[in-house]
């Protein structure tokens, strides 16, 4: 009997100490991990889209709530003055959900660039929408442009053999651009 009690006590004590310790370490590293995740997963796309900014793009991010959805907005500053902002939109591709980062120039409302941050497209086929040859088409276009593939009456050339994936990226940019226009119209931000 005593042996059983001892077994249970020892095992619970070990688990409790481990659980407590891990909770402490987890909360201590939490903000750093989130930052590292942003830096490594979104960072490359953000840096490319907001190229030329003088500030720390990851540290200067802002979290805002739009239509009950939490969004992270990256702000690019030149000499301390914001000149562009970038955020991410979701859309459905061929293999599942894809996330597309896009940036807008605040002075002339054009796109500063587009980058696919995560996707589940077929490697070598749908995944080619991440190439510069496709995403580069968006750069410099007005936020009011029709971001659709040419077959649907838009201005974007599809990646051959990956029309569904191409449409997914266009959808995301379209959504992002209309959000940008709405917010611009509402406030002066």
């Amino acid at each position: 009997m005593i042996e059983y009690v001892k077994m249970i006590v020892v095992l619970s004590a070990i688990s409790a100490v481990c659980g407590f310790g891990l909770a402490r370490i987890s909360s201590a590293t939490k903000t750093r991990i989130e930052e590292q995740k942003l830096l490594n997963v979104k960072g490359p796309a953000v840096k490319k889209i907001l190229a030329g900014s003088g500030n720390n793009l990851i540290a200067d991010r802002k979290e805002i709530v739009i239509n009950d959805k939490k969004m992270i907005v990256f702000i690019g500053k030149k000499n301390g003055v914001p000149w562009a902002l970038a955020y991410e939109m979701e859309a459905d591709g061929f293999g599942g959900e894809m996330n597309v980062m896009m940036g807008f120039n605040l002075s002339d409302n054009t796109l500063t660039g587009v980058g696919v941050t995560s996707h589940k497209e077929t490697p070598g086929v749908g995944s080619r929408v991440t190439d510069d040859s496709f995403t580069g088409q968006f750069k410099g276009k007005e936020s009011t442009a029709s971001f659709k593939v040419k077959a649907d009456g838009g201005v974007i050339d599809v990646v051959t053999g990956a029309s569904v994936s191409s449409r997914g990226v266009c959808d995301a940019v379209q959504k992002g651009a209309s959000l940008y226009r709405d917010v611009r119209a509402e406030s002066g931000k």
Binding site: S26, T29, R32, I33, Q36, K37, L39, N40
Partner: peptide
């Protein structure tokens, strides 16, 4: 946790 925080 540590690799995530310091060597992502």
């Amino acid at each position: 946790l540590l690799t995530q925080a310091y060597v992502y």
